[in-house]
Simulated assay, not measured.
Amino acid sequence: MKSIEQIVLGAAIEFLTKGEFGWLCTVVKTFGASPRPLGSMLAMDSRGVVFGSLSGGCIEEELLDKLRRGELAATHPEILEYGVSAEENERFGLPCGGRMQILVEPLAPSAEFCILLGELCNALDHRRAKRRQVNIGTGQWQLEDITECEPLSITGNVLVQDFGPRYRLLLIGANELARCISEIALAMDYRVIVCDPREDRRDQWAVTGAELSASMPDDAVSEFADPYTAVITLTHDPRIDDMALMQALTESLFYVGALGSVRTSEKRRQRLKQLDISDEQIDRLYAPVGLPIGSKSAMEIALAIMAQLTQLRSTASKARTVNGG
């Protein structure tokens, strides 16, 4: 499954290679509440076919109206602002006080744009991070490889936008909790892989969109391990969970978590120490998994887990902004 960025960029490549003119539209600033986060993208061809989303419909319709009137950026990028009045908030479906700035970039059917877009797509396909810098005055692009993604920013007349791999969630154990986590994670645009070596558990799995793996847990962790992947063990069977954790705690992963009570988690840590996992590696383990919100049901626990992942991603993003940008 592809991320929304891959879908948008791929659509732009497709209409450009057919010789059609188009536009790439990006949310570059938000003020107050906004329907879509910073960096959300949309591609639109000269026929008015839209790929991606900026607001859920209303701003897209306004852009289409501009296209029909011949008022959309033709030669150079332009920044459009929405929500500057209460009337506009109501018209575009923005929350009270919410404002958005959209960068509209005209894309000519040239080899240059196809190559640049193709380079971005190729990086995402191979789970590499890429930064694009756009001169808002001229529309000129520059691409460079990066190791960590930072939030979108505009400095002077230059847009800096980082593209990173889609976050993945590897769940060990195909059970009811895995189903609940999968449903929330898929809605949040995670790629979800559920690994369970037990055939009877795999036969009962029925969540559309979540991939199913019959690999041994340590092999699955090795296959998917990278800094944009989280691994969570859910089986309550130490023979399965510990196998995954032994591998996961030695890998460069975004997050490693394990289901269980405080007492169970402490016993797990002691077992891992006996299996030659270092104290430093064990300290990376989130167990009990999830934020302590008093969750009891499977869906409540799933919510606590996904909330913790969201919190950690947000904290990491803010830290990078303070320290590096």
Results as ranks from 00 to 15, higher is better:
A304D: 12
M100D: 09
L249F: 04
I301P: 00
R198L: 10
P151G: 05
A307I: 02
L9F: 14
L54G: 01
E144P: 07
A230V: 02
G32V: 01
E144T: 10
R268T: 06
R320F: 05
C195Q: 04
I154V: 14
Y286N: 14
Y190W: 10
F113R: 09
A244D: 13
S153G: 10
T147I: 09
L124S: 01
D276G: 06
S252L: 08
M100K: 05
F113I: 10
E62H: 10
Y82Q: 09
E78H: 13
Y255H: 08
S213N: 05
G137S: 10
E20F: 05
L42W: 00
P227L: 03
S34I: 03
Q140T: 15
I240R: 06
C114D: 01
I102H: 01
T208M: 09
S40I: 00
L245P: 02
L259P: 06
Y228P: 00
P77I: 06
G10R: 00
S317Y: 02
R271T: 02
T75W: 11
T17N: 12
M100I: 10
P238C: 08
I232N: 07
R239Q: 13
E14K: 12
P151V: 05
G19H: 08
A287M: 04
V322G: 12
F224L: 15
W205Y: 07
A248S: 10
L245N: 01
I277D: 13
A86L: 12
M243D: 07
D162M: 03
I232W: 08
A220S: 11
R168W: 04
W141P: 00
R36Q: 12
D145A: 11
T250H: 09
A86W: 02
P292D: 12
K2W: 06
T250V: 09
L275N: 14
L38P: 01
A123V: 02
